[in-house]
């Protein structure tokens, strides 16, 4: 058990390092897209450690407690994440619902701490984040329902292995509509444009982050990197057939994340009610159609 826990924290650390370096590389790629040179690839590390080295301010015990809870919750979630078929801390316990709901603890911690700062922009940002969550989660969960119903398991490695056993017939191909929906949902989850409403610097001055600086912000950055790791690798395992070894995982992970970034960078951001409208229009419909086709009619390519 001790070994498993250590592996779990190893995964969390690995996720942090991977996502932070990839984030830096992506900033460079985006820089090129915007006719710039771009920062160093390890810039994200510098930023985070810089923040940790600063002397921050605090608005009371809840302000700090929320941040600790946020980071703790996310680290705990990451420990359940499988990297490949064999590198998984708690085999059989990597239940899909754990990721959806345990991530929420971290989010709740952050939301609580942000609102606890007493800044209205933070509260508005939290409101928008929750509303966005309400928007993308329902279509996404319906697609997941389809997958779980098809595979008969909600274990992430189980689903990945199912795809590999089916001759690498990924759900990306088997459930094309569901894949499109989930990709949009992934963009919503990662808070990428056009669903970036809750950061929106020009409207609410970076939303929940408005009062953070120094170590709290640094910890939230770490939390954010790990969250992105969880969400993107969830996507890799669910739709891209998981990974037999770590190289394939890295490749798929980088591809998905870079694609999300490239797409998001030529878009502006929606208003918050447009996000809700957007997700409850076509993606929800597509997800239901996909579910009906796959579950009731059994038409899976």
């Amino acid at each position: 058990m001790m070994i498993n826990i250590l592996i779990g924290f190893g995964v969390a650390l690995f996720g942090f390092v991977l996502q932070t370096s990839l984030g830096g590389i992506n900033r460079k790629i985006i820089g090129r897209l915007q006719k710039r040179y771009g920062p160093k690839w390890y810039q994200e590390f510098l930023d985070i450690f810089k923040l940790l080295s600063k002397r921050a301010i605090s608005h009371g015990w809840l302000f700090d407690f929320g941040v600790i809870m946020a980071l703790g919750g996310i680290i705990a979630t990451a420990t359940f994440m499988p990297v490949t078929n064999s590198i998984v801390a708690f085999p059989n316990y990597d239940n899909f619902f754990i990721f959806v709901y345990l991530i929420a603890v971290g989010m709740l911690g952050m939301a609580m701490s942000a609102s606890g700062s007493g800044n209205p922009y933070a509260s508005i940002g939290v409101m928008r984040a929750l509303t966005t969550m309400l928007a993308y989660e329902v279509p996404f969960m319906i697609v997941i329902l389809t997958i779980i119903k098809l595979t008969g398991t909600s274990s992430i490695t189980g689903i990945a292995e199912f795809q590999q056993l089916a001759g690498n017939n990924w759900f990306m191909i088997a459930l094309p509509l569901g894949f499109i929906v989930s990709f949009m949902a992934l963009m919503g989850m990662l808070g990428k444009k056009p669903f970036e409403t809750y950061i929106a610097p020009a409207e609410i001055a970076s939303g929940p982050m408005v009062e953070y600086g120094g170590k709290q912000l640094g910890m939230l950055f770490i939390m954010h990197e790990i969250t992105v790791f969880i969400e993107v690798s969830l996507f890799v395992h669910l739709f891209l057939g998981g990974a037999e070894n770590i190289l394939i995982f890295l490749l798929k992970y980088a591809a998905v994340y870079t694609l999300v970034n490239l797409i998001s960078n030529v878009y502006g951001r929606f208003k918050i009610d447009q996000v809700v409208k957007f997700f409850y229009k076509w993606p929800l419909l597509l997800a239901i159609v996909q579910a009906v086709i796959a579950v009731y009619l059994g038409w899976v390519i």
Partner: peptide, 22 residues
């Protein structure tokens, strides 16, 4: 900040609020 000189090379970037800024 933008293409011509690109401050981000030096690791500099704009931030929204005084709490976050150096």
């Amino acid at each position: 900040m933008t293409s011509a000189y690109d401050m981000e090379r030096l690791g500099m970037g704009p931030m929204a609020t005084p709490r976050q800024a150096d």
